[in-house]
């Protein structure tokens, strides 16, 4: 079984400053870490490896210095690491990032793709599911427990606002995971020694035979107009009774607030 874990190198702070003119993240002077949610994806991959003898490859798209993060995952026990790095990838939004990662995963081949639920810098939670769409494979987001993996399918718990769903999907599949899933392991000394010597494999857009127009800033349709935290709306009314009573009640409420 082949597993690919996608990780992202992010600034080490949950309060990233934003450049008000360009509406992009200010990364200068902030130390980089592996996106914390991605570490849970790594742990999930390594746990599957421990149980089922899978091969784990860690993948990231980023500048050459992202190698440090890949090496950290090698030190935790991943078998191989791939860095997608090319000037052509610079400025990618979630669409272009997912497009590029999906191409790399197809190129490398995987039965299970694991991602953190979102990155702590952008917080979009879009790249994981979008990779699955580009690959035309199923995805399950917010995975809080892996129930079982058989030869050609996987059963997981998906964390919901209230409780969880049990979801089954055929392989290959993409999962995005939440921190409730597990506790990431420590990097081992043997792993660190191996990581120190390991030559990280690099892939460019030419290796993946991609259309340059779909890459980087050129291939990114997103234009950020403004960034703000959405208002949390917690008010809700639960209507009880028979279906007829519920309908009557709903109509009177909608009338009262002049919706109908």
């Amino acid at each position: 079984m082949k597993i690919i874990v996608c990780i992202k190198q992010v600034p080490d702070t949950s309060e990233v400053r934003i450049n008000p003119e360009t509406n992009t993240l200010i990364r200068d002077g902030v130390p980089s870490i592996i996106n914390p949610f991605d570490l849970h994806a790594v742990e999930a991959a390594l746990s599957i490896k421990d149980a089922l003898n899978a091969e784990v490859t860690v993948l990231t798209m980023g500048p050459p210095q992202a190698e440090v993060s890949l090496k950290e995952v090698i030190a935790m026990g991943a078998d191989a690491a791939v860095l997608l790095t090319d000037r052509a990838f610079a400025g990618s939004d979630t669409w272009a990032t997912a497009y590029t990662l999906a191409a790399a995963i197809k190129f490398l081949g995987a039965d299970i793709v694991l991602c953190g639920k979102q990155a702590i810098d952008g917080d979009t939670a879009q790249v994981g599911p979008a990779i699955a769409e580009f690959m035309d494979i199923p995805h399950i987001s917010y995975v809080s427990k892996i129930e079982s993996i058989s030869g050609d399918s996987i059963t997981v718990r998906r964390l919901m606002d209230e409780g969880y769903d049990i979801v089954e999907a055929p392989l290959p599949v993409l999962l995005t995971v939440v921190k409730e899933l597990n506790q990431p392991r420590m990097a081992s000394l043997k792993g660190k020694m191996r990581a120190k010597k390991l030559e990280i494999r690099r892939l460019t857009y030419k290796d993946l035979s991609l259309d340059e127009n779909n890459l980087g800033l050129k291939g990114s349709p997103t234009r950020v107009k403004n960034i703000f935290a959405p208002e949390m709306k917690k008010d809700r009314i639960v209507i009880g009774g028979t279906p007829e009573e519920q309908t009557d009640e709903l109509i009177s409420i909608l009338k009262a607030i002049k919706c109908i």
């Binding site: 392991r185 081992s188 000394l189 043997k190």
Partner: peptide, 8 residues
């Protein structure tokens, strides 16, 4: 143990 500290 995970960090290989016992095998130093």
């Amino acid at each position: 143990a995970q960090a290989d500290m016992f095998g130093l």
